[in-house]
């Protein structure tokens, strides 16, 4: 077997092969095939319940799949807890509801996994945390608690927290859906900047403007399947599938 270090420099970032998942009898993911190359930015959209969140949550094993293969950075996902934790160290995730730790300050939120997972000394962890908080322009709030920040600020902290682990790929699960309209832009700006820096990204989002700006590929999912995948220009201008057209008319039509 390849060592992670050897495989990390070449090959795709993420490989998903014939992924299937059921919730009880409900078939949520059906034969998903997806390969993400290094530095690629992918936007995943689709109606609610189409399995898009479930799919990206399979990449860091927040959801368990029953059939198929998930390979992240050359490491194949198994049931082994150590293996799963090894994969998670390379995969950052940002959630719809931020999921910051409310009992810890912003700075402590960003240091926690550096200290406990990467075993970094406290001072080094704090320096890294401040560097990323600076980049999401929230360093001046480092000593506040999440509950004292606005939604947009919290989501930027959540992005910084994930980046502190220096992940190879970032997963965004509807990062702007829980935000008030005036805060969406500040979060998207951070994500756009991240994309320009070359981060491999998978974003589940309905922000089509974002998709047009940064995506290399847009994936449309419905009923647990990938219906269509295409570069943004052709995806928005000539969608091939009827369902994609219907979906686009519903979210762009007003």
């Amino acid at each position: 077997m390849n060592t992670p270090a050897a495989s990390a420099s070449n090959g795709p970032m993420i490989e998903i092969k014939r992924l299937n998942k059921w919730y009880g009898d409900f078939h949520v993911l059906r034969d998903i095939d997806l390969t993400v190359t290094r530095g690629e930015r992918i936007v995943i959209c689709g109606p609610s319940g189409s399995g898009k969140s479930t799919m990206i949550r399979c990449i860091n094993h927040l959801e368990e799949h029953q059939q198929g293969e998930v390979v992240v950075n050359g490491i194949a996902m198994t049931q082994d807890v150590k293996r799963i934790e090894q994969i998670r160290r390379h995969v950052g995730m940002v959630f719809q509801h931020f999921n910051l730790f409310p009992h810890l300050s912003v700075l402590e939120n960003c240091c926690l996994s550096q200290v406990w997972v990467q075993k970094k000394p406290r001072a080094e962890a704090e320096a890294t945390a401040m560097e990323y908080l600076e980049r999401v322009q929230i360093a001046n709030q480092a000593h506040k608690y999440p509950g004292q920040l606005s939604g947009g600020q919290q989501q930027r902290v959540a992005i910084a927290r994930a980046l502190c682990m220096r992940p190879d790929v970032m997963l965004f699960d509807e990062p702007t859906s829980a935000l008030d309209p005036e805060m969406i832009k500040e979060v998207l700006d951070v994500m756009i900047e991240l994309a320009h820096e070359g981060m491999t990204m998978l974003c589940v989002t309905h922000e089509m403007g974002f998709a047009k700006t940064v995506a290399d590929r847009v994936i449309f999912m419905d009923q647990g399947q990938i219906i269509e995948e295409a570069p943004p220009e052709s995806f928005f201008n000539n969608p091939r599938s009827e369902r994609t057209r219907l979906f686009l008319s519903q979210i762009l039509g007003h």
């Binding site: 860091n60 927040l62 995969v91 959630f95 509801h97 999921n99 926690l112 996994s113 997972v117 682990m165």
Partner: peptide, 18 residues
Amino acid sequence: IDKGQNEAGQALGLGYWQ
């Protein structure tokens, strides 16, 4: 406690006891 808290911990690579 919202299960998102545990998930955020998982996503950061923290083990069960952590």
